[in-house]
Every structure is written in structure tokens, then in C-alpha cells.
Write a protein that binds this DNA or RNA. Sequence first.
RNA 1: GCCGGAGUGGCGAAAUCGGUUUACGCAGCUGACUUAAGAUCAGCCUGGGCGCAAGCCCUAUGAGGGUUCGAGUCCCUCCUCCGGCACCA
Length: 812
Amino acid sequence: MTSEVEKKTDRYTPAAIEEKWRERWASSGLHNTPDTSDKPNFYFLTMFPYPSGEIHVGHWYAFAPPDAAARFLRMRGHNVLFPMGFDAFGINAENAAIDRKLHPAVWTERNMAHMREQFNRMGAAIDWRREVVTCYPEYYRWNQWMFLKLYEKGLAYRGDAPVNWCPRDETVLANEQVINGRCERCDTPVVKRQMTQWFYRITKYADELLRFDGLDWPERVRVLQTNWIGRSEGAELAFPVEGHAGEEIRFFTTRPDTIYGATFMVVAPEHPLVEKIAAPKHRPEVERYVQHARNMAEIERASAEREKTGVDTGAFARNVFTGERIPIWVADYVLATYGTGAIMAVPGHDERDFAFAKKHRLEIREVISPDGTAHARLDEPYAGDGVMVRSGPFTGMRTEEGKRAVADDAKKRGTGGPSVTYRLHDWLISRQRYWGTPIPIVHCDTCGAVPVPYEQLPVVLPRDVEFTGRGGSPLSHVASFVNTTCPKCGGPARRDTDTMDTFVDSSWYMYRYVDPKYDKAFMNKDLGKKWLPVQQYTGGVEHAILHLLYMRFMAKALRDMGELWFDEPAIRFRYQGTIVFKGRKMSKSRGNVQTPDAYVEKYGADTLRLFMMFMGPWVDGADWDASGIEGVHRFLRRVWELAQAEAQPAGPRDADVDRAVHRAIAKVTDDLQTYSFNTAVAAMMELSNALQHATGPSRDEGVATLLLLLAPFAPYMTEELWERRGGRGSVHGQSWPAFDPAIAAANEVTLVIQIDGKVRDRISAPAGIAQPAAEKLAMASPKVKSALDGREPARTIFVPDRLVNFVTRRPS
RNA sequence: GCCGGAGUGGCGAAAUCGGUUUACGCAGCUGACUUAAGAUCAGCCUGGGCGCAAGCCCUAUGAGGGUUCGAGUCCCUCCUCCGGCACCA
């Protein structure tokens, strides 16, 4: 039956077709996006990859669906900017240099070449003229420029703080790069070190970052960011230290209403006052404890199950509310990095303080009562709201009122007042590594830290560096780099040998794509005005906090410098889930990296693209299993045959086929807007199944429509078929098919007939049938008659075009 | 522990507003074509029961309860899995 067709059409050979179109598109510049056209501009951005060299199926999953979405927008009449580049700095390149004696620049270039090739095989419609590569001086000079600008504004500063140190990578890490007390990269337990480092003052924008006004971002990402920022309202208060005139311990609490229950204080081992106030008798023990705490790995120290250790400093503070002397302890359950590194301990109403008080026999006092009456003893801490008891003039106040009253009272006395604290810390951006942006600062013995003058940018990363993997920042061993003159006094000086966190690079790259070669500013603002902000951003959920928060911060900082004219860099964000393999993340070290190459070779890029989108909902990710790839390949082969079959003889239209076509248009259009790629593919499969059995002009037109719908998904095959069918220009330059609801509307519907909610029959009826007519039809059904068995419906539920439900029971 | 999200065939998954559960595929089974295999095409595929058969009845969306004419969808309790945070005062 199909033999005739087979003679006329050759077999579907993806390799040849795809190579042909790759070349044609490249030479015709099909994917080049003009900055102005008669169509509205649309900036569609997908997170650029790190050129790790290991291309796996996850890369296709991240890039093929957005490519389809971008192509769809083009067919819908937008001038779409869909750029790509490389997040090319990073520690992996340096480790590769150490392991294989390959310069990071060489390793990175090689990997980028490989990845560009992959993008091209995928058929991604990328305008490569706009490529951005972060490790080139033309790019990173603007990191340095921004650093200097932030420094001028007080948004970049050098600070001494307890920081996360990864002993294996020999560098500090931002909080965001520590996962469960371990280094995000190498999984080594992180230790805290007191170090002088560079920070970006992201906390200045904490409150603004909590607002997502006008943003269409997934709830999940907003929640993650909100929790990360961790805003807490309460009071910052201070208790004076006895015997140390002028010294006081400041602390933050969310429960000022419990202050009469503060029977002791606890300071973190890193607290600056510890050494000063420890009583001589206690000093050796305190020093031993502090030393021990410092040497402990974070993961060990942070374990909540661990018993609460601590020692008495022998010093006392005065609870200014009760007037009592209360002991000051040092314990590592108080974190140096949150609040002020000290707390008032209220064992009666805080679980941790309770456990500590029990262990060290400290006084536990009830000051909040759920029922308003004071109890003789507390067997467990009560952390809920209630009424203040044993609280002097505040006794009888409820928690809400008490919080305010105590904070206001403290303010009147000059010992504190209402305050807000965040979990979010300033962004630690310096790294003791080579492959990153040099920090444009010169250290001079007379002038201190001096910014490199703007006209001397970029501070170029020296090429000849020895990679030993040991002994601090590799740059510190390069004399020609380190030794310089002070821009201020002209005397001998040393360059800062740290480099920037690579998240600095990616915090603003979206502005660079607009005109990556522009050398007067980080962005060509004239062109930027045509594109920014990004209208659609996509990428992995794993960046929900790190990159996406930094990117928002940088936009706000640049805005406040007058460099940007919007508050948020990306209006709409959608993420894809993660592709794992047998339940585990793919990685070279695990040896479970699944590469796309074999599939591309066997089935073609179009099939793999389509399969990536068909596997399941994009947001969910998947456990990689290629067993279903045959199915989508078969579908493409059927379309291949269908599109080349002989033209149908003239004849009447087929309303059923026309309806199927327009329903598919509606479904695919909708699904592409909501990133439901899997159901879009299913809808096209359904359409192709329907067309297979159709005849006449409806079939021919339906096939033509199917090719247009399929074009964003399978760009190669549809282009080839478009050409073979004598289409003008490129299929990708065509308009998206128009949906006609009148054609899609059914004139026959299936009515479900229920009796007491149970389906008894299905009958076909004209669309829009009125209730009386529908009931009559339903009653005529023999099945309904026998099921009713002579009973009379007490009432009838009618859902137009859907169901008739006869209810025989009376409502009880 | 806290905050999110999810549990539907053998598998990946569909299912506007509460209204035909299982679309679209994979795997499997049966048949057609073939010397045969493959490819392709047609059909079957929750479980159980009745029937020679067309078909019919009951049952099923993690478990239990509730609301409703009607629940995968809403409410309550519980279980399991995934993600995030984790002594944050």
C-alpha cells in the first residue's frame, strides 16, 4: 500500500539533511538577529554554560526546548535575540592545568570549540556574532570597571570576617557555595577562617531583593530566595559587662518579650569580647575552648544533634530589665556570623537555651505563659506566643504587644531598639585562584589599598604562571604581575593577587550580548535600550539562589549608578529540572556521563530534540532513559512520508480533519507558551495520526500546518520538507498558523449519562443541546432505562455539552 | 526539625472550572505482510468476575476519613519519595 510512496520518496536520512542545512543556514545568516526590524524585539536568554568539555544529555535538555520556544516566538512575529556564550572562568580549568599540564586558556578554548559544535549540531538558532566569553580581557575588564564603581559607592569593601575556607581548593567560598558544610565543588568539609577579603554589599539590597513586583518567576524560586535572605524582625539590645566600664554585649532577639527570662548570655567563640572579659581564673579553659572551636570543621560544628558544649567566661552582664547579674558563657551553638554573634539566653522559651541550661545547671524561668498564669516549674521550653508573666511592668501583656513595648522601652533607655536582621551575608567575591578576573587593587605601604585607575584597565591576567595546586594564589608567585607602582604616590607597591568569584562574571553578561565588542562601556546603551530587560530567561533550578540573586543585585547596583534604567534584569523566568542517570547526578568523577553523540548519529538531532521535549514536563527533569526515543523517531519518519505523499485529489473538505488541525494549533500554541513541550509533541502526534487516515484537501492543508507547528521542534527536517514541497524561503521565516475557534468547535459532543454519579451510558448529541432535549435523549437510552429500573430522578444535574446526571436519592 | 513539591497502568506520562481516568508514547502480546527476521500496518493491554461471543457487572489515581449528585482534582489525618534550609537567637 505504501510501496508507491516508497518509490517516490527516499528514506529519511537525518545526517545528510542536517549537514546540508547547517551549512546553508550558516552561509545565509538565517540566525543572525538585527537590532532593528519591522517586528517587535524580544530578548530570550538561556543561561550560558560552563565549558567543562563534558557534553552530556543534560546540555541538550537545557538548550533544545528554549531554542524551540525562541523559534516559536520568531514565527509569531517577534525579532528574537537568542544569544549564547561561555561562562569561561573557573576552577575546573585550573585543576585541568594542574592535572594535565595544559594551560587553562588552552583547555577552555578547546572545550568551547567542542560546545559550539554541539550547539550547531543541535540546530540551535544562535546568533554567534554576539557570543560572549567571560575569560577574554575585553569582557572581564568590565568586571574590574564595575568593581571600581562599586568601591567608589561603598558597595565593594575589604573586610575582616570569619569566612568559609575550602582546604582542598585552597580558596575561600561564598556562603552560597557551601552545601551542608561542604565545598560545592569538591565536597570537602569547609572550615571557618578569619581572613581579610573583598565583599560586595548585597545586604544593602536585602529588602528590595525580597520584592518580586512585576516579575513572572516561579513560586519555588521566589520562596528559595526569600528563605535564603531570611529576614527576621525583632530588637537589637545591649547588656553592659560588669567590671568593664563602657563594654557591652549587643545581641539580636526576635523575642524581646522574653527578656525577663534571660538568665544568662552566650557569645560565639569568635566574639571579639571573649578574650577581654574572661575572668583570669577561667581564661585558660576559655582559650582552650575557643581554639578547639576554631579548628573544627563547619559540618561537625553545625550538627544540630551534637550536645551543646560551652564554658563559663567567669564574667557577668547586667540584665538591664531585671537588674540581675547574669553569667556570660561562650558556646559554639551561637554563630559568629549571624546577628551580633551573641545572644541573651532564655532557657524557658528557647529549645537550644533550654538544653544548654539543663546541661550546665543554669536558671530556667518561665516568663511567657500560654494561659496567662505563672507556673511553678517548666518541664520543657515553651516557644509559642502567650502572656508575659514575672515581667515587671510588662506582666500581662500579650506577645505581640510585649515585643513592641520592650523594644520601645529599650530605645528610651538608650540600650537598643527595634531592629531587623538577615540571614543573607555580603557576597564574598575574592578567590585565591588564578583563572578569574584579577581584582583591580594595588597595595601600597604608604597609601594602603589603592584602586587601579580606570584608564589602566584591564588588569590582564598573566599567561605564564606555574600551577602547583599548592601554596596560595598562583598570581602571588608571578613577580612581573605583583610588582608595580602605586597609582597614588608612585612608590613601589604590590597588586592584589586574588581573583573574582566567577558568579561576578555571570551577574551581568546579559547586557554584554547586545554588543559584545563595544569598548566604551560594559554595554552599548543605545542598543541595550532596544532589548533590555530580558523578557524571557531560562535555566536550571540549581541556580535559584546563587546566580539569580547575584544577577538581581548587580542590576540594582548598576541602576543606582545610573547605568541601567530598570529594576530587574529578567522579567519572566522558567527553569528546567535536572537530568540524572539512575538517580544520580551525572559527573565525570562518577563515570556516568551520558553523551548525546550516539543518539544524534543514529536518529539525528531532530529526533533527540523532540525526545528531550517529549520525555515529560520540562520543569520536572528526568532520569535519563532513552528507550522511548524510537517512538519520536517513528513519528518523524511518518511525518516524512506524509509530507511527501502524492497530492490528494480534489474533493470535499473533511470537517473532522479540519477540526483536528485547528485543535492541534491551539494546543501547540498554548503549550509552547507554558513550556509544556511534552503535551505539544503529543498533540502533533495525534494530528499526524489523524492525517494518516484523511483524504482530500483537508489532508493536504493539514500536513502543511503540521510542518509549521513542527518547525520549532524539528528545524532540520521541516526545512528539508518545506523545500521539497516547493515552499518559498525558509520554513523558519513563515508565520505561525492561525487558530480558528469556529473550525475547532465540535458540532457533535459526547454526553456522559450518569445515574447517582455513576456512568451508565455515553450518547452523542449536537453541540449546545439544551437540558430538556438532553434529558429526553438520555431517558431514551436502554441502558439508562434498565439502570433506573423504574425509579424517578429526584433531580437532574446538567453540565452543557458534558453530562447529564440523574439523582434518584433524596439529599439526607 | 522547618519550608516547598510530588505519589495515576509493567514504564515515561495525560486529564481547563470538581464532570468519560489513563491522551500521546515505550515495552509486551495477537494478527497481516514476509521463505524468515527486521521494518511497516491493524488490534489488545488497571485488576477481578460473568459470557461461546458482541458485551455486561464490579473495582482502581500512596493509605484512611470528610464535603459533594459527582473527587486524581477541595478539606482533615497519616505514609513514602524528591528538593531546599538546617543550632539563624
